[in-house]
């Protein structure tokens, strides 16, 4: 099949021919990383599920346009990022909506903890869970490009080149974004890092 070694691309070629079970396999494999990505970019876990669902439906709808030369995961995350950017744009045009969703997202575990409201004193012993919540909040405060670069670098499927393609920037710019994001996170949690 055009010599593409990417197994997901092979599945996508089957989807292109209308194979629903191949599509199901892809959804099953990527539902978690896509939902995680969308939730952390939008800081809205409720909306993340709907958007992730729309991402996969879009994949199915545009399957006929998929070219086997492209890596499936890169294509999928590009679609997911575009959905997130559209949602961010939509919210910026309708501030009332974003206020509403912010209130809704306060149901998320990260927002309900004491750390999000009153960050603990550095001198106090801080548990990993709280530190992770702090990291989650620190990620939320990053610019979208840094956030995307930082989150995608953790995806095994994606190389730096793939992330650069998704972000639409150069390889060195991508590495620079990751470095800046990590430095920013380290600054925010520095008092707790060496405990």
């Amino acid at each position: 099949m055009l010599g593409n070694p990417d197994p997901d691309a092979q599945l996508m070629l089957l989807v292109k021919q209308g194979d629903i079970s191949a599509f199901e396999t892809l959804v099953e494999k990527y539902k978690q990383p896509i939902t995680n990505y969308v939730a952390r970019i939008l800081q809205d876990r409720d909306e993340a599920e709907d958007i992730a669902q729309n991402v996969f439906i879009q994949v199915f709808k545009t399957a006929r346009r998929y070219k086997a030369t492209a890596k499936f995961s890169t294509w999928l995350f590009t679609i997911a990022r575009n959905f997130c950017l559209n949602e961010i744009r939509r919210r910026s045009r309708r501030p009332a909506d974003s206020l509403e969703t912010t209130n809704q997202s306060q149901h998320t575990p990260a927002a309900n903890t004491s750390t999000s409201l009153n960050p603990p004193e550095p001198s106090k012993k801080i548990f990993d869970d709280e530190l992770i919540e702090l990291i989650d909040e620190a990620i939320a405060s990053l610019p979208e490009t840094q956030k995307t670069a930082l989150l995608l670098v953790r995806e095994e499927e994606l190389s730096y080149e793939d992330i650069a393609k998704i972000l639409g920037c150069s390889l060195s710019a991508t590495k620079s974004l990751i470095h800046r994001a990590r430095e920013s996170l380290k600054q925010k949690i520095k008092p707790y890092l060496n405990e």
Binding site: V27, N36, Q53, K61, I135, R182, L185, N194
Partner: peptide, 29 residues
């Protein structure tokens, strides 16, 4: 610090995905 940050990023919890997510997507598709 780099390794500790790595460790914490690796521990970021997954966002819950409903068990019927795939079925719903496939049905919609």
């Amino acid at each position: 610090e780099e390794l500790r940050l790595n460790e914490l990023l690796g521990k970021l919890p997954d966002v819950s995905v409903p068990s019927n997510f795939t079925a719903r997507v496939v049905e919609a598709a």
